[in-house]
Computed example of a mutant assay.
Amino acid sequence: MTVKISDYPDADPDYDLGVLISRLNRDFERELWRTLTARGFTDIGPRHGSVLAHLRPEGVRASDLARLSGQHKQVIGTIVDELEALGYAFRRPDPSDRRAKLVVPTERGQAELATAHEVIAVFEQRQAEVLGPARYLQFREALRDLAQASVLS
């Protein structure tokens, strides 16, 4: 099925899907990085977000970070090297496969993750206030479905 802007008579051609997604993402990233900087995380930036967004306390394989972020493994490896040097993460053997390494957040990395989660919660609450809780939940579920379909293709 092909969707055309003319299929939506009330649609403003200046606000196609790409523009809308970019605008919302810019607002989110601006708020996230402004807050992180204000809280003392001045040595990281959006480039590091492709790894930090997917870190878990138990660790994540670099290959999974690459898949989840949509980045090449080499790019993820470089970012993980930077995060190690900055004290946000370290590599350790994966207990389920000693040949593999897990990328694990340090205490500073966990503090950054907690701060990011706070920012995300506030941002999402504001979006829910604009749309109303039910519409926001539908929006979030639809967005998740689209993102999942994108990862799978």
Rank of each mutant, 00 (worst) to 15 (best):
M1T: 07
M1N: 09
T2F: 13
V3N: 02
V3L: 13
I5A: 08
I5Q: 02
S6V: 14
S6M: 13
Y8I: 15
Y8R: 10
P9V: 12
P13F: 04
D14G: 08
D14A: 09
D14P: 00
D16S: 11
L17Y: 10
G18I: 08
L20M: 14
N25W: 00
N25A: 07
N25Q: 02
N25I: 00
R26E: 15
D27Y: 06
D27V: 11
L36S: 11
T37H: 10
T37K: 08
T42E: 07
R47W: 13
H48C: 08
S50T: 12
A53D: 03
L55K: 00
A62E: 06
S63G: 04
S63T: 10
L65K: 11
L65M: 08
R67I: 02
R67Y: 08
G70D: 03
K73E: 10
V75A: 10
G77Y: 07
I79M: 03
I79V: 15
I79Q: 05
E82W: 03
E84S: 02
A85C: 02
Y88C: 05
P95L: 09
S96H: 09
D97L: 08
R98D: 10
R98M: 11
R99D: 03
K101W: 12
L102Y: 08
L102T: 03
L102K: 04
V103P: 06
P105A: 10
P105Q: 11
P105V: 09
E107Y: 04
A111N: 00
A111R: 14
E112S: 10
L113R: 08
T115I: 04
A116N: 01
A116D: 03
E118I: 01
V119G: 07
V119C: 07
Q125R: 15
Q125T: 15
Q125M: 12
Q127H: 10
A128R: 14
A128G: 13
L131V: 09
G132L: 07
R135K: 13
L137K: 08
Q138F: 06
E141F: 05
L146M: 15
A147V: 14
A147N: 07
S150C: 10
L152F: 12
L152V: 03
L152I: 04
